[in-house]
Every structure is written in structure tokens, then in C-alpha cells.
Deep mutational scan, measured.
Amino acid sequence: MDALKSAGRALIRSPSLAKQSWGGGGRHRKLPENWTDTRETLLEGMLFSLKYLGMTLVEQPKGEELSAAAIKRIVATAKASGKKLQKVTLKVSPRGIILTDNLTNQLIENVSIYRISYCTADKMHDKVFAYIAQSQHNQSLECHAFLCTKRKMAQAVTLTVAQAFKVAFEFWQVSKEEKEKRDKASQEGGDVLGARQDCTPPLKSLVATGNLLDLEETAKAPLSTVSANTTNMDEVPRPQALSGSSVVWELDDGLDEAFSRLAQSRTNPQVLDTGLTAQDMHYAQCLSPVDWDKPDSSGTEQDDLFSF
């Protein structure tokens, strides 16, 4: 819950932080000083300027060897085509990944977070970031790969997607708890209302004896509580940590079903599988986004697919 609360507080303090972009060759504004600060901008989305290598189908939802083989196929196909790589912007948030063309600003792909089953910074092609997700059109699994400016960037994108998945799962947990509370309150309110109706004398007997209905007592009954809980029953509950912020979080049926399955089948359902080692994760978390744009010590960066 700490990640969720800190993310909400950060967004309320400075929503404009989320509009910064990394990996864009110096076009961005001043960047936060450390990885923790940038992680807090996830709610509205972190932007990464990358190059799209392509996509291939895979048979399993996750796995280092599986993704490595898929990336190898994608890279080989991209090299064989001889075409310049498409420059894209990857927007990562707890909602998922939005992929747009840098030149036309046209939407290429919009992947809900619950469809993503794996992401990684490839070991062999260490400047490549990739994720595996279920197609929104059918049940097939797709591996999408992107060329980053350097290994640090690939690791940073991988960690960002993993963190977005974690925050999304926490949102789901909060929403589920809130819905259970509202359902319980609604049920209790309905029981109270039913009890009051059972003990209320029939209207005919009131008229016969000349008694008047006590409207004041009726007004004191917990009807307002019942209506408050039943009027918006169809509205999706939102985490309290975000009250007053500009973010509107809505959970669709697909996300609810997917996270429910994860909660039942996995020990740590909030953790998205990645190909990063503990050492890689520690190294990337210690980086400032400013470091992502620094040239690798191995030599001059080449803006070309064939540089790796």
C-alpha cells in the first residue's frame, strides 16, 4: 500500500511530472533526481522514447528462454528487412502500455495491464526491452520488442512496467475491499429498513384510530445511509488515497477476473515476472533518469539497429 499512497501523494503535489519523457535525446524537461521519484509518476504514465523492432507469436506467457528466442527472431526479421526502425513513445501506467508513433502521434497499440504476463531486458541484446501480452483480438500470446538507447534504459522500462503492474494490483485490492464494505453496509441498511417496515402498523389501523404518522421519526431512520450505499452501487469504487486528485481509476471486468485468478494461483500475485536478476534490479533502481541518457562506457552510441 505504500507504493499506492506515495504515488497518489506525488501526483497530487505535481501532476505535471508524469508528462516528462525519457530517452528522447535531450528533449525532456528537468528530471527527478532518483528512481523513487520517477516511480511516483506512474499514475498518469511515464513516457519512454524507443524504437519498435516488431512482434512475434509465442506459445507460453512467460520465460527467459522463451523471450530470448522470440527477441532473436524479431531482431533477425528487422535486420533482414533493412528498413529504419519506427520511433515510438511507450506510455507506461497502472492501466497498461500505450504505444504511439512519434511522427504521426497515431495510436499503435493499447495493452491493458492485466494482459501483460512478462517483461524483460534481454541478456543477449542488452539494449532490447520486450514484453509478452495476450492479444486483445484473440487468445494468442505476442512478444513485442523495442530497441532502447542503452542497457540502462531497457532495464528502466522493464522495472517501470513491473512497478505499474504492482500498483494496478494494489488498486484492485483496495477497490475489492471498498466494494465488500459497501455491499455489507448496503445489506445491513436493508435489514434495518426491513425491520422498521415489519414493526410499522398498517396504514388502515392508523387511520381508524385517528393517529398521525410521525414524519420526524421517519426522517431519523437510516434511510439516507441505505440510499447512499445503493444509489451508486454500479459505480466502481476508487482508492481513497486518490481522493481529490485528477486521476480516475476504473476497474473493468477483465482486470477484476484476471487479478482474482492471480490472487488464487500465485504466492506473490502482485509481482510481474521479469528477466532481471536481483543485481540488475538493484543497479537500475539506483540510477537517476539522467543516467539513462548518458552514453555507455563501451563506446559511442549508434542510432541504428545494427549497432548491437
Rank of each mutant, 00 (worst) to 15 (best):
L4Y: 06
L4A: 06
K5L: 14
A7S: 13
A7R: 12
A7V: 05
L11I: 09
I12T: 12
S14Q: 04
S14P: 12
P15G: 13
L17G: 09
Q20I: 10
G23F: 04
G25E: 14
G25R: 06
G26L: 08
R27Q: 12
R27H: 06
P32D: 11
N34D: 05
W35M: 04
W35S: 08
D37F: 03
T38H: 11
E40N: 14
E40Q: 04
L42G: 07
L42C: 10
K51F: 01
T56C: 03
L57Q: 13
E59W: 05
K62F: 04
K62I: 03
E65K: 08
A69I: 01
R73H: 10
R73F: 09
R73M: 15
I74P: 01
I74L: 03
V75N: 00
A78T: 02
K79H: 09
G82E: 01
K84W: 02
L85Y: 01
T89L: 14
T89N: 06
T89G: 08
T89I: 09
L90Y: 00
K91Q: 10
K91M: 07
V92M: 09
P94E: 02
P94K: 07
R95M: 03
G96M: 01
G96P: 02
G96R: 12
I97L: 12
I97P: 01
L99G: 06
T100C: 07
L103A: 05
T104C: 08
L107G: 00
L107M: 15
V111A: 03
V111S: 03
V111C: 07
Y114V: 03
Y114S: 04
I116G: 01
Y118F: 08
Y118V: 03
T120S: 05
D122Y: 00
K127S: 00
A130R: 00
Y131H: 01
I132F: 14
I132E: 00
Q134A: 03
Q136S: 14
Q139A: 15
S140N: 13
H144F: 11
L147D: 03
C148Q: 00
C148N: 10
T149K: 11
M153K: 08
M153T: 15
A154R: 00
Q155A: 05
Q155T: 05
V157N: 00
V157M: 01
L159R: 12
V161D: 00
A162H: 02
A162R: 05
Q163D: 15
A164H: 12
F165L: 03
F169Q: 02
W172E: 03
V174D: 14
V174N: 04
E177R: 13
E178T: 08
E178K: 09
E180V: 14
K184T: 13
K184A: 08
S186C: 08
Q187C: 01
G190K: 04
V192M: 03
V192P: 07
V192C: 07
Q197F: 04
D198Y: 05
T200E: 09
T200W: 05
L203C: 04
S205L: 06
L206E: 12
L206R: 08
L213T: 12
E217V: 04
T218V: 05
T218C: 12
L223S: 03
S224R: 03
S224P: 12
A228V: 10
N229R: 07
T230I: 09
T230N: 07
D234G: 02
D234W: 02
E235Q: 14
V236L: 09
V236M: 07
P237R: 15
R238D: 06
Q240A: 12
Q240L: 12
G244Y: 13
W249L: 11
E250S: 12
D252E: 05
G254M: 03
L255N: 04
D256T: 04
E257W: 02
F259M: 02
F259N: 02
A263L: 11
S265I: 06
R266V: 05
R266S: 06
N268Q: 09
P269Q: 01
L272N: 05
L272R: 02
D273F: 05
G275L: 02
T277D: 07
A278C: 09
M281W: 08
M281H: 06
A284F: 07
A284C: 15
Q285K: 06
C286S: 08
L287I: 15
S288N: 04
S288D: 03
P289Q: 10
P289F: 09
D291Q: 05
D293I: 06
G299K: 11
E301I: 08
D303S: 06
S307C: 11
S307N: 13
S307Y: 09
S307R: 13
